[in-house]
Structures are given as structure tokens and as C-alpha cells.
Design a protein around this nucleic acid. Structure first.
Lengths: 328, 328
DNA sequence: TTGAAAGCGCTAACAA
DNA sequence: TTGTTAGCGCTTTCAA
């Protein structure tokens, strides 16, 4: 029996009789035969490989990766993972993937300048997830982050808050959009004079620092919309330890609806990004580029949703004045 | 100029004149040439590829992955990552790596039965990290987890604690060793009658549940040695919210010395595993098997270290009795 | 339904 | 120092 026939059987394509098929399969199992994906892809001169660059310490990326595996599998593609670590930068991570002959790259929250991303995109299709990039060659799948902060601020205002601060994400992907969303939302509510942005970051530590800064002020704001859940949880912890009650003394809204936010003890009100949908769309877009399907809009923007939990409540009255109700 | 010569230049091996080298390099850059690692490895009939199976949501694995990249690079190998997610089990993750023709597998905290791991190991060298496996075919690099709990208990006893509980990790890798370490340490200190093990887990949520259970008892233990940092932090948070002060009312020791434990606000006393060393040793062992170097012991056990921070302190006296010092 | 032959992009061994 | 040849393990024509 010839190599080609074996190939046909192993791939499960039609062209072999049932008898031969069984025989080949049986012998293959006996010999412990495993197809060599490298050789296979080499001969096809297609790799069917989607490269994914992600931050190995970034829980949000973990969620996305899970969705990407699922989406790629459904579409008959494979995922090659390349991690960004403190000692392995994004450029490096992307290069490896290029050498592996990935057909397209999916970058999760990349931090590199748009220009460098554009240069990558001149070599193969690039889909950026969770960061806006204004480069015609680059596809983007992201949440409407400004809208996310509108949701947060609207919610807080509806509860009666006015002195609402924003703890931002510095130069993190999406940070600029969230800052902008905060500002416009405050303005729309006529609270521009209360607008205040504190330096935050992506980590619990940065949230703790922001909280310490808040605690130095004579009077606490009544609410904070925070860049992400981790930062918010850092704040939460620091505030709690300082004897500040959440949400009684201050309301907190996070971002991402991460596992941590859902913890029963944390129970953080937060803005949710639909990770599964983002992953699906990113894979779909990469494949669309690969197969030359027409693409209507370069940027796909998902609407975020507000997840109300226990860290937001109406502001505590500053002075509880007892006066007769005006209308009996 | 011939293909072979190009190959020589691109690989940077000696055998080409400086002139040709420059010319080839220049032309390569102009053409945007990238070597195809598949074809390269195929032709060498060696992949120089180390497959790593890790949990994409597991921060401890993230740290290890970082070290693995570094170690592999230093040894001239590459890392192929394969993630375990809720919808992609370990067997699946390992299979992909096999198809990619990885020469050895490094499994981070695998949960599968030892037998299945042994079957894998019959196909290629397998190094298990952070879990003891009693299979002659499998190499193991792990921390002396029972020793880690000795450190924790010794520290607490030295501070004056006696009613020390252990919140365990259920069926997680390393959990059995830590339970055992706890029990023997307690016994050694003559505290066997205070031995008490609560069901915990790997997550904050499981820690929160354990804390809630503790809080139902009429009297709190004076200290807890917890399976890992995440679980300890879940407890910490729940206790704090219940008005229990740490370390005044109860001391807490975590495990892993994770980023979270180092947060200034958390500042968790914990048992540290030397992640970098473990990563280095895992890679070294995989390569040793590949190159047929003699190996003395199948299992490499690293000593853990205690990192004392702010969640442990002497127990508060139950009743502060004022009596004259016996010796003036 | 089956087999033979060519070739994917590279490296290795050898010859010029 | 350079070029030639063969072959890695597979898929893909095309013929039998």
C-alpha cells in the first residue's frame, strides 16, 4: 500500500475503499503513527495556522485565548501561541510566529506603536484585539471602551453620585478611550467641574497607590470608575483596610468582568466585555483576510455591558437633616 | 548563488566568504526573506522543540513559562506552548504538541492520572513540574511541598501559635504533599490534637468558602497555613470583611509567593517556590533525556523558602492578665 | 481504487 | 569558498 493512499486515509478524505481504510487505520495505530503537522503544512504550502501574541500574566488574555482556540477549531485552523513576558517582547513574540509560517496574526492588547504594527501588517494579515489602532492595514476587534465608561458613569449618576473620579490605565491599550468616555459622560451630565482623573494602571498595586492618594485628600469622592477590575480590587482592598466602607463611603466600578470581580466576597460592579464574541470575530476576520472575502469595516466595535454587583450604591448623605417632607 | 550557500549565511555558520555573506544578507533583507522553521526542522529531522502544557489562567504557570522561554533559549531550543482551558483538556493540549513533533514535553502541574502521563512518556521524554509523580519513566521537578508546610507551621509555632489549621488544595497537584507536611509538622510540635484540615482549593473563591466555614465556629483558630496564595487571599478578604483582623486575630500563611502576595496591601507571609530554578532544571532535564546524558535522580526536589511578610504575628493573648513579673 | 512521481523550503554531505 | 545532490514526511497531481 502506497504513501499516497495512507495520506488519503489519515486525512479522512474520500478516495479509498472501506477495506483499505480499515487496514491502514489499524496498522497506523499499531505502529503508533502520528502525522507530522510540519511536513503536512510544508507540502500544502499552507499552514492553516493563526498566530496569537498574548500576555502570559494577563488574565483577560487567558479568557480570550480560550475563545480563540474554540473559534479556530471550528474554522479548521490551528492556534500557535506566543507569549509576551518581561524578558520576551512583542516584537520577539511576533517574529517567532512569522517563522512558524503563521498565515495571520492575532495580537491581544499590543502595546507597540501603531507604526510597528503596520509594518507587521505589511507582511501578513494582522488583527488587533482590545486596542484601537488607526492604521488602514490593521483589523481591530475591540469593545467600545468609551461607551463602557458612559455606562459606568451613567449608573453612578443614576444612583445619585456627582463627585465621580476616574482612575485610568496610563498608556495601556484602551486607556485613552476610557478616559475620553469618562470625560464626555461627566460633561453630558453637567458634572464637568467634578471631572478628575487619577493615575492608575493595570494591576492591583496601581489601584492601591491610587487609593492611597485618594485617602490623602480631605474628602473622598463619592464614587470611582476604574480602568480595570484588578486596579479596582487593589483600591478596594486599600480602602477597606483604611476603614473606608465600599459602597457606603465610596462606590467602585471596575472593567472587564474578570473572574476576580465575580468572587462572592469582591462582588464588583463592573463593565463586561464579551470575550467569546471578540475571540470569534477576531478569528473570523483573520480568516476573511486570508480567503480574500470582502470586509466591510476594518474595525469591529462590540458594545460593553454593565454588570451591577455590590460595590455601587447611592451615596451616603453627607448630613442627614431631618426636615418635614415638603409634600405630605 | 546556490541555496546551500544561502542556508549557510542565514544560519550564520562558518563556510562563506565575507563578501558573499554581505551580498546574501542584503538580498535577503530586500526580498523580505524569512526562514521557514518548519522546513528547517523537517530537513534536520529534529525539531529542537520543547512542548509546554500550561494552564492559561494559572498565574503560577505564567511565571514558569517565562522562565522556560529563557532557559530554552539559552540551550538553543524553542518552546511550543499549548494551553489547557476549560474546553481544551490536557490530553488534547499534549496531542497538539506531539503532532508538532516536539522532542520532549514539559507539563506544568498536570492533573491527569499518573498512568496516562506514563503512557505519554512511552512516546517521548516527559518532565512534570510542580507535581510529584511516581512513575519511573517520568522526570519530575518540584518543590519539597511537605517541607514548605513545615516552614509555615514552624514559623507559626515559633510565634507562639498552637491552634493552627490547614486549608488544603483538594486534588490539586502538590496538595497531598502539603497536607502531609502539615500533619507531620503539627505532630512534631506535639500539636497533633490541634491538627485540623479544611477543604480549600486553588482559587480565591475556595478560600472565601473556607473562611466562611471558620467563621461559623464559636472560636477562630489562631493561625492558618493555606494551600496557595490565591486561596489565602480569598480567606483574607472574607475575614477582613467579617471584622476579623489579620494578623491580630488570626495569622495567615500562603504558598507560591505570587505577585498578589507581594502587593503592598496584601503583604502575605508565604512559602516561595523558586520558579526560575525550576524552569531551568525542567529544561535541562528534558535536554538531558534528549541527548542521552546520564541522569542520576529521576525526581529533582527544590527546597522552598519562607517569605515572612505582614500576615503573621504572635497570637493575641486571650486574656491579658496583669501579674507581677516573676523575676524582677 | 490504487500507485508513481514531483515538490513544499530547508539542511547535510559531498564534490568542484 | 562554492555548487551539487539527496532527502526530511507529507500532499498532490496524474496514470494505471
Amino acid at each position: 500500500v502506497s504513501r499516497a493512499l495512507v495520506s488519503i486515509v489519515i486525512r479522512g478524505v474520500p478516495g479509498a475503499s472501506e477495506g483499505t481504510r480499515q487496514r491502514v487505520l489499524h496498522t497506523a495505530a499499531e505502529l503508533g503513527y502520528r502525522p507530522d503537522s510540519r511536513a503536512r503544512l510544508l507540502s500544502r504550502s499552507r499552514s492553516q495556522l493563526l498566530g496569537v501574541v498574548f500576555g502570559v500574566q494577563h488574565p483577560f488574555h487567558g479568557d480570550l485565548v480560550e475563545g480563540l482556540y474554540l473559534a479556530a477549531e471550528g474554522a479548521g485552523y490551528e492556534i500557535a501561541l506566543s507569549a509576551v513576558t518581561p524578558s520576551r517582547d512583542e516584537a520577539r513574540a511576533a517574529q517567532t510566529l512569522l517563522h512558524d509560517r503563521c498565515e495571520a496574526l492575532i495580537l491581544l492588547g499590543p502595546q507597540r506603536p501603531a507604526r510597528q504594527l503596520a509594518e507587521l501588517a505589511s507582511q501578513l494579515p494582522v488583527v488587533v484585539v482590545a486596542r484601537p489602532v488607526r492604521e488602514p492595514a490593521i483589523d481591530v476587534v475591540r469593545t467600545a471602551d468609551h461607551q463602557g465608561l458612559h455606562l459606568a458613569v451613567d449608573h453612578l449618576v443614576a444612583l445619585g453620585h456627582r463627585r465621580i473620579v476616574h482612575v485610568d490605565g496610563g498608556s495601556a491599550p484602551g486607556s485613552a478611550d476610557r478616559r475620553r468616555g469618562y470625560r464626555t459622560a461627566m460633561r453630558r451630565h453637567g458634572l464637568a467641574q467634578h471631572s478628575r482623573i487619577l493615575a492608575g494602571g493595570l494591576t492591583e498595586e496601581s489601584g492601591a497607590a491610587a487609593a492611597r492618594q485618594l485617602l490623602q485628600d480631605p474628602v473622598l469622592p463619592s464614587a470611582a470608575a476604574v480602568f480595570n477590575d484588578h486596579c479596582a480590587i487593589g483600591m478596594l482592598d486599600t480602602l477597606l483596610r483604611a476603614g473606608v466602607s465600599v459602597p457606603d463611603d465610596i462606590s467602585l466600578v471596575g472593567y472587564d468582568d474578570s473572574r476576580l470581580a465575580r468572587l462572592s466576597t469582591v462582588n464588583l460592579t463592573t463593565v463586561g466585555q464579551d470575550v467569546r464574541v471578540m475571540a470569534d470575530l477576531a478569528v473570523a476576520r483573520a480568516i476573511a483576510r486570508l480567503t480574500g472575502q470582502p470586509v466591510s469595516e476594518r474595525e469591529i466595535v462590540i458594545q460593553p455591558t454593565l454588570v451591577v454587583r455590590a460595590t455601587t450604591a447611592p451615596p451616603r448623605r453627607r448630613r442627614a437633616v431631618n426636615r418635614p417632607a415638603r409634600f405630605a
